[in-house]
């Protein structure tokens, strides 16, 4: 019994040391990314400006696009679910905008290294993680604009806000972390498997319908509902929907699961990215 326990202790000690070492590397790497925040900001503003440079409405498109999508989905699915909701458009918006951010972050993240990264990687020294951070930050800026627009719409519709709006900052933090983590994962994996860039887009569409965004979770029979608990986006969007639309406290499970899953995805994404980033310059 005694030798067994000591070997357990050793394993525990070793894994604790490994974990401590990993944390140190991670903090050091993230600090370096932070030191290059001016580059990140520069790229983000470029992204936002250049994307709509030649169009007449310009930056307004960042608002018009989600608004149109919201309108279309409201027209199509509002008829179906009208009985369940006071303002279907608000319910839809509270989930859809967060989803659009996630889809944008994942899509642009998968191309972060192989597209923009490749032009800079071989020419100047930059921490490689700058590129997925840029794409996610650009998506986040768009998300903030659309969120503000939604809240204005809600005020206009005389939606009654409750104290549970305080969950919103937590929801946004979880969403940003999760989007960032998925971005880091995809940016890294796409370097090795180019097909992922195209695959991401298709998978996201399927994932969209598997998440309660256009339909309420109440529609799902109780005995099948557990299936949704495996979907990380369900937990995060639940926080948005309860705080914005329902105005009631979120389920405890979601409140715990959302931050844990987001942190896990972000940390593993960062670890994998930092583990392989040295090779990128040879592979892009």
């Amino acid at each position: 019994m005694a030798p067994l326990r000591s070997s357990y202790l050793k394993l525990l000690k070793n894994s604790a040391m490994l974990l401590a070492w990993l944390c140190m590397v991670m903090i050091w790497k993230l600090r370096e990314v932070y030191q290059y925040r001016e580059v990140i900001w520069n790229f983000v503003t470029q992204d936002l400006r250049v994307r709509y440079q030649r169009s007449i409405l310009g930056m307004l498109w960042t608002l018009i696009k989600p608004a149109l999508m919201l309108l279309i989905l409201t027209l199509v699915f509002g008829l179906l679910f009208r009985r369940n909701f006071q303002h279907f458009v608000v319910y839809l918006g509270s989930g859809l905008l967060a989803w659009l951010f996630f889809a944008d972050a994942a899509n642009s993240g998968s191309g972060a290294i192989i597209h923009r990264g490749s032009t800079y990687l071989t020419r100047v020294y930059l921490p490689k993680a700058v590129f997925p951070f840029v794409t996610t930050a650009a998506a986040l800026v768009n998300f903030f604009f659309s969120l503000v627009a939604l809240i204005i719409l809600m005020i206009f519709l005389r939606h009654n806000f409750t104290i549970w709006l305080i969950v919103l900052p937590l929801a946004i933090t979880c969403l940003a972390l999760f989007g960032m983590g998925v971005s880091l994962w995809l940016a890294c994996l796409t370097v090795y498997l180019r097909d992922l860039e195209h695959l991401t887009d298709v998978l996201l569409r399927a994932w969209f319908y598997l998440t309660p965004i256009i339909y309420p979770i109440d529609m799902i029979p109780e005995k099948h509902r557990y299936l949704f608990y495996f979907n990380p986006m369900f937990h995060i969007l639940h926080l948005f929907q309860t705080s914005l639309y329902y105005g009631r406290p979120p389920d405890t499970m979601c409140l715990i699961a959302a931050p844990l899953i987001s942190a896990f995805v972000f940390l593993t994404g960062a670890a994998v990215f930092f583990w392989r980033e040295r090779e990128f310059v040879f592979l892009v």
Partner: peptide, 27 residues
């Protein structure tokens, strides 16, 4: 590095904006 001059430039940006980008890249 003065390698491949102008390589760090973003073609969509103006010369002035690229000056600031280069400055940011070199911290």
């Amino acid at each position: 590095p003065l390698i491949n001059l102008g390589a760090g430039f973003n073609p969509e940006l103006t010369g002035r904006e690229n000056i600031f980008l280069a400055g940011a890249i070199h911290r």
